[in-house]
Design a protein around this nucleic acid. Structure first.
Lengths: 228, 228
DNA sequence: TTTTAAGTTGACCACCTTGGTCTACTAGTT
DNA sequence: AACTAGTAGACCAAGGTGGTCAACTTAAAA
């Protein structure tokens, strides 16, 4: 992946400039159309250096992918608290982590999305394995140890799972569209979390059986100090 | 758009070969990256002919877009029956029309999806107007004249609308993923409509207030003779 | 101070693809 | 025979590609 450790020992600002320039180029253009010329230009380094750090374009791509997967594991999956047995609460928690991750590392998230759309990419075994392990882990972190007894008894819980999942995905997707182009720092996330919370309340009413007053306060992690 | 009517008077098979080759190329590659060389090759015509029919690449694109919008209006929007006041039934009807359209003209649907993702496209006024009229019409065909009284009274109908909408979109998206690469004629649509129907039943149970037995048979258009 | 080595640059290369033109050709009609 | 609409594809200048390499700078070692 890397020719030597020159790149890893680089000044952190420079290193990040290069990584971000590359992530952005690859996610906007896809692997094939991505231009190493534009990458070095955006990163503010000479063309030669890129190929001094990385053997070729492909190595660079693999490096970025590996880097992104590691970050997803550490900053997202490993932080999901599976002791939360309420499915809707679990989803709420995951949504917050997702948004947090997106706000902190947007270019990485865009890069991973674009990677998922690539068709003709072949990966070295180790990265491929890492990727699939992550997928499996993600799946279990979402669905394992859920308390089925909360669901209405006249509804198939598996179907309820799916419908709730799709609803949340739909909301997130729409929110993404609505926020496109806005400056991340100018967004008042509170307001959107409130809106999201309202939708979750409706889902609770619709899919759980009634237990008056039990879930008035959904945000168990309300000790959060961040704005979003 | 067209230089003269030579293209419209073309042998229908040839005309469709060209249209489909172009639709496919544009949807797979996007406007900029699409190659007129590949289009003529796939269509089995000489390079010269494309520019004999169309002034340039842009004219061709505009022609295709106009063509696709017309078809969407005639084969989809105009066929939505707004006398159906039940939101879930309306959505069911729309889903069937969508799938029908997709099966009959997949390349057009892919083309329109890809067009929606284009960022730097500017359209001539007439096409732009047609596009926006279609959007408005589509919106009203989906949400106009819906019977709110069917919804549970402890749930905000606007939110229920959205959640049902997102659920259906989610199902369709997942189905698309599952069916990717399969031969369209080998698919047993019956089975998927049944599955879809089951999800809609759940949504009905969750979001409508109880009226025993009233909606056992959702498919009012069960006189359909088609396989799907 | 001199030598060596690591880090860095961008001009350069051979190659490929692009949208569009134009000459030459065919086939059918007058 | 003359004309014309339809057709093909070689050709063009322009511009981009991933990758190389000789030349240069900087800094540490001897």
């Amino acid at each position: 992946m890397l020719i030597n450790d020159t790149f890893e020992n680089l000044d952190l600002k420079k290193k990040n400039r290069i990584i971000n320039a590359a992530l952005q180029e690859f996610s906007e253009e896809g692997y094939e159309r991505a231009s190493t010329n534009r990458i070095v230009k955006a990163a503010g380094i000479g063309k030669g250096m890129l190929f001094y750090y990385f053997q070729n374009k492909q190595s660079l791509y693999h490096y970025l992918l590996n880097y992104s997967l590691d970050l997803t594991l550490n900053d997202f999956l490993d932080r999901i608290d599976t002791s939360e047995k309420d499915f809707i609460n679990r989803m709420y928690q995951i949504a917050r982590l997702k948004v947090k991750l997106f706000a902190a590392h947007p270019s990485i998230m865009y890069f991973l999305s674009s990677f998922m759309l690539e068709k003709e990419i072949t990966l070295p075994d180790d990265i491929n394995e890492k990727f699939h392990k992550l997928q499996t882990l993600g799946y279990s972190k979402m669905y394992e140890d859920i308390d089925y007894s909360l669901f209405r008894q006249d509804i198939d819980p598996a179907k309820a799972f799916q419908l709730i999942q799709w609803s949340i995905d739909g909301y997130q997707e729409e929110l993404k569209q609505r926020l496109i182009g806005k400056n991340v720092h100018s967004i008042h996330f509170e307001q959107y979390w409130q809106e999201f919370y309202d939708y979750l309340s409706v889902l609770r009413t619709a899919f759980y059986h009634k237990e008056e007053g039990k879930y008035d306060n959904i945000a168990s992690e309300s000790s959060d100090k961040e704005v979003w």
